[in-house]
C-alpha cells in the first residue's frame, strides 16, 4: 500500500524534503525550533522554498511566531492557498489550523478522528506547490497526530526525516527517549537532536544559569548514537521576536511596520539564537545531502 498514488503523494510530489519536528514533551520549543529551522532553511539559498505545516491542532503557535496570525487562508480552484509569511516573494508558505479559527481565543476541541481528517486535508488539499523543504511542527506526545502523519505520509516515506528537540531536564529527556522509540517503531530516520533552553545568560551580570540544567541532550545523543545538532540557550530576544516582534512590554498587537517585505526575518537575524542556528542548519543540510 505504501507506494500507491494518493491525493497526498500527488500534492507533495514536488516537495523534496519533509522534516518533522518532534519532542515528546510540551513547551521545550518545538514550534520555535520549527520556525527557526524554516527561517534558516529559507536563508540558506536565495531561491530556497520552504513550507511549514503546523499540526498542533489544539494549540497552534506558528502563526503568531511568524507574525501572521491576523491572516487567513483562501480557497482556490486548486485547493487552499497557504499564507506566505514573506509576502510577495512567496518562498515561505505556512498552513495552520490557527488560520481557520474565527477568533484567536477559540478552542479546537477535537477528538482523534477529526484531527486525523484535518491532517489529511492539510497534506492533500493545500496548494504547497514546489518546496525544497516542508517543516512539520507537531504537538507533544506520540498519539493521534503523529500516527496520522505517518499514515498519510506513507507514500512519501523516502523523503521523511525528523529532528528531536529536548531541554536538558530529566523529565524532558525521558519524553525525548519515548519520542525516539516512536521514530524507531515507525522507521523514521532521525537527523539529529537539538538541546533547547540550555542555560540562561543573566542580563545584569552575564552569569550563565542552567535554568533547566544542562548537557543532557548531548549525553543522550551520544548514548543513542544520534547526531547532536547543537544547543540553544534561553534567548529572551527570541521570545520577544517570536511573540509579536515588539520590544519590552509593547502591549498591543502588531503595530504597522511594513517597511520591508519580511521584517521578522531581519529582527530574527539579529538575535544570538540566529547565529547558533546557522550551525544547526548546516548540520541538518549535511545529513539531508547524505541521504
Amino acid at each position: 500500500m505504501a507506494l500507491q498514488e494518493t491525493a497526498v503523494t500527488r500534492r507533495l510530489q514536488n516537495v523534496k524534503n519533509i522534516v518533522l519536528v518532534l519532542a515528546g514533551k510540551g513547551g521545550v520549543g518545538k514550534s520555535s525550533v520549527s520556525t527557526q529551522l524554516a527561517l534558516n532553511l529559507y536563508n540558506s539559498s536565495p531561491s530556497a522554498k520552504v513550507g511549514i505545516l503546523d499540526v498542533d491542532l489544539t494549540g497552534p503557535s506558528i502563526p503568531r511566531m511568524l507574525g501572521v496570525d491576523d491572516k487567513g487562508v483562501h480557497q482556490s480552484s486548486d485547493g487552499w492557498v497557504p499564507v506566505y509569511a514573506d509576502g510577495p516573494s512567496a518562498r515561505l508558505a505556512l498552513m495552520s489550523v490557527g488560520f481557520l479559527l474565527k477568533n484567536k481565543g477559540d478552542s479546537v476541541v477535537w477528538r482523534g478522528p477529526k484531527k486525523n481528517g484535518m491532517i489529511r486535508q492539510f497534506l492533500s488539499d493545500v496548494r504547497w506547490g514546489e518546496l525544497d523543504y516542508l517543516v512539520i511542527d507537531t504537538p507533544p506526545g506520540t498519539s493521534d497526530e503523529h500516527l496520522s502523519l505517518m499514515e498519510h505520509l506513507a507514500g512519501v516515506h523516502g523523503r521523511l526525516s525528523a529532528v528531536i528537540v529536548t531541554t536538558p531536564q530529566a523529565v524532558a529527556l525521558m519524553d525525548a527517549m519515548k519520542c525516539l522509540s516512536f521514530t524507531r517503531a515507525v522507521n523514521l530516520p532521525v537527523l539529529g537532536l537539538i538541546e533547547n533552553m540550555s542555560g540562561y545568560v543573566c542580563p545584569c551580570c552575564g552569569e550563565i544559569s542552567n535554568v533547566f540544567s544542562t548537557g543532557g541532550g548531548a549525553e543522550m545523543a551520544r548514548k543513542e548514537e544520534l547526531r547532536f545538532l547543537g544547543t540553544l540557550p534561553v534567548d529572551t530576544e527570541l521570545v520577544s521576536v517570536l511573540d509579536g516582534g515588539h520590544e519590552p512590554s509593547g502591549g498591543t498587537e502588531q503595530a504597522e511596520e511594513k517597511n520591508a517585505a519580511f521584517p521578522l526575518l531581519d529582527r530574527y537575524s539579529k538575535t544570538s539564537s540566529a547565529r547558533l542556528f546557522t550551525e544547526i542548519v548546516k548540520g541538518v543540510l549535511e545529513v539531508l545531502e547524505e541521504k
Binding site: P203, C204, C205, E207, T236, V239, D243, P248, S249, T252
Partner: peptide, 19 residues
C-alpha cells in the same frame, strides 16, 4: 521573572509582551 543566583538581579526570561 528570574532571579539570578549570582547578582540577585531580576530579569524576564519569558517577557510578558502583551501584559
Amino acid at each position: 521573572g528570574f532571579v539570578c543566583p549570582s547578582c540577585k538581579g531580576e530579569s524576564q526570561i519569558f517577557r510578558p509582551t502583551t501584559g
